[in-house]
Simulated assay, not measured.
Amino acid sequence: MTAPLALAPAMADALSRWLEVEAATRDRSNHTVTAYRGDLLAFLAFLGAHHGQPATPKSLGDLRQTDMRAFAAAERARGLGARSLARRQSAVRSFLRWISDREGHDLSAALSTRSPKYTRSLPRPLTPDQARDTLDMVAVQHDTPWVAARDTAVMTLLWGCGLRISEALNLDGADWPFRDSLTITGKGGRQRHVPVLPVARDAVADYLRQCPWRLAPDQPLFRGVRGGRLSPGAVEGTMQKVRASLGLPPTATPHALRHSFATHLLAAGGDLRTIQELLGHASLSTTQVYTGVDDAHLMAVYHSAHPRG
């Protein structure tokens, strides 16, 4: 296998500047910026091998549709799925639009290449009974009482407050005791205030009473068995055992509890716009996907909220 050509200094500088622009002006999360860097490095490595020399900002002006199609074919041959390829091509097009403005290129032909179609899998929430059964099973899943209490507290925050698993596990001792609401920093650095139900506060308090590690402001709220910050993998492992015990489908993941929070709120008469704010979604359409709301309901929310509705 031929080693990839080194990135030209001018291209490395351009890529770095574009990623800075994406992070600063488009509110991209660190995870997204890292993914974009990987997407562009894959594309630029392909161009270097395809043309026999490292790509430069100037040479990108010669890109054609055939280059883009060859890149897509190479990625598919490497086993990249349609969804991942579509995301990768989207990142590449964003970079190319930026570089064409900066360098004065006409890349309309290359940018017109279509991404592969794929079926978006919709999240599947648990029913209220399934969610309650899940929490009950988590409470008896581990032989060590404080670990069982810890996992119950985490799962309760996911279902009761709609937190992402990373948001729950990033809580520190300084966040305790919980007040009526938590200030959560989510994707893209967006902050939101999430009401804390008494049942969630009580679950965390029960865990802390049993936890063998001293609570400190600069230390994790949720600890692993060795005292470090609890990992998402440990929570997912617990959920896997619960699925097996209750006969739940593979879609019953910790993240599904967050989906369930949104769906159950909506079913109880919650407002879609408020649920959007509680989840920390930048777009109402994302909340629509989470909750399975149909277009008619979405338009009803739009018309009720719009000043000219």
Rank of each mutant, 00 (worst) to 15 (best):
S29F: 14
D271I: 09
F178L: 11
T134M: 01
S181C: 09
I184K: 07
T291N: 10
R243H: 10
G237D: 14
L169K: 08
V194R: 09
L40G: 00
P177H: 14
G81K: 07
H50T: 01
S108L: 06
A49R: 15
A24F: 10
E75T: 04
S94Y: 01
L5E: 06
S108E: 09
A55G: 11
L7A: 11
R229C: 10
A77P: 13
R37W: 14
A72W: 00
A42E: 13
A131N: 06
G79Q: 13
L126G: 01
W159H: 13
R201V: 08
R243N: 07
P249G: 08
V293S: 12
L163C: 08
D202M: 14
A82M: 09
A10R: 11
I165P: 04
R209S: 13
V92D: 00
F95L: 03
M137N: 09
V293K: 05
E167A: 06
G48A: 10
M68G: 00
P249T: 07
P128T: 02
R102W: 14
V147P: 02
L44V: 14
A256V: 04
P212S: 03
P249Q: 09
L47R: 12
R164Q: 08
S90W: 00
R164L: 06
A42R: 15
S108N: 08
R17M: 12
H255C: 01
R17A: 15
S283Y: 12
L284W: 07
R258E: 04
S115H: 10
T263R: 11
D180R: 15
D151G: 03
H255Q: 07
T2S: 15
S108A: 09
R201I: 05
G79T: 04
R192F: 10
T144A: 13
R209D: 09
R64Q: 12
T156G: 12
D106L: 00
R87Q: 02
D206E: 13
Q288A: 04
H193Y: 08
A296G: 02
R308G: 04
R114M: 05
H281L: 09
H264G: 03
A203Q: 05
V204D: 06
L44N: 01
W159G: 00
E22G: 12
A6C: 11
R120I: 03
Q276K: 15
T291Q: 07
G224M: 06
M155E: 06
V33T: 12
L248N: 04
V235Q: 09
H255I: 04
P217L: 11
A55W: 05
A3I: 07
A72D: 02
R273W: 01
G233I: 12
A216M: 13
H50Q: 10
T119G: 04
T144N: 14
R26M: 13
A268P: 03
A300D: 03
G52T: 01
S59P: 01
D180T: 14
R190V: 15
A200P: 05
T56Y: 09
H255W: 03
S283G: 12
A200G: 06
V199D: 08
F178A: 09
D206R: 15
D133Y: 04
V21C: 04
T134D: 01
H297E: 05
H259Y: 07
T185D: 08
I165A: 06
C211S: 11
A23W: 09
L7H: 07
P198F: 11
G227I: 00
S181E: 14
I165R: 08
V293T: 13
R258M: 02
V199N: 06
T32I: 14
D129L: 13
